[in-house]
């Protein structure tokens, strides 16, 4: 199948998004942080008068992060909400040379959760990303409450 893919790098690894799912690739200018939001959500940004929720893909994978993500992000829409997926860099648009296939042994826990399988491209194999899982964040963070969530007031 000749599906178009948006090729990107996440934590140095080659990853691919289905081009039909990516509305555009933007350069993020300003991000307003969201206090108390899960760690993998960097904040909100605006694109063409709409708010986007900015997701750091590396953190969503549960990877520990020392460097800032790249300025470019892939914009996807999931259930009516727009997200900007921060990646190291967006490389190119390429044609898929194969259907997504599982890799024996998997991609490792973090990647396995967000992957739809491996696709071959002219630039080499890449992990095809499941956007819905990517924006859901790592399960541990997703369910655990952050320390600030317990009440700090008193009952009136």
């Amino acid at each position: 199948m000749n599906e178009l893919l948006v090729m990107a790098r996440i934590a140095g690894k080659r990853a691919a998004f289905r081009a039909v799912e990516v509305q555009s690739v933007i350069e993020i200018e300003g991000i307003s942080p969201i206090p108390r939001a899960p760690d993998f959500i960097t904040g909100l940004t605006a694109m063409r008068s709409r708010s986007l929720t900015v997701v750091d893909c590396r953190k969503s994978l549960g990877l520990s992060v020392e460097t800032a993500p790249g300025v470019r992000a892939a914009v996807v829409e999931v259930e009516g909400h727009l997200y900007a997926l921060q990646v190291d860099q967006v490389e190119d648009v390429a044609e898929a040379r194969s259907d997504p296939e599982p890799v024996s042994g998997g991609f490792g826990d973090a990647w396995q959760r967000v992957s739809l399988g491996m696709v071959e491209t002219d630039a080499g194999p890449a992990v095809l990303i499941d956007v819905g899982r990517m924006i859901a964040g790592p399960p541990a963070i997703h369910s655990a409450r952050k320390p600030g969530n317990e009440p700090i007031g008193v009952s009136a």
Binding site: I34, R36, I41, S51, T53, H81, Y83, I135
Partner: peptide, 19 residues
């Protein structure tokens, strides 16, 4: 006011976002 992404709504302290 526009709705927020579910992961942000889950914090419970925001009702929406606006520009």
């Amino acid at each position: 006011v526009k709705p927020l992404a579910p992961a942000v709504m889950a914090t419970g302290i925001y009702a929406g976002t606006t520009l």
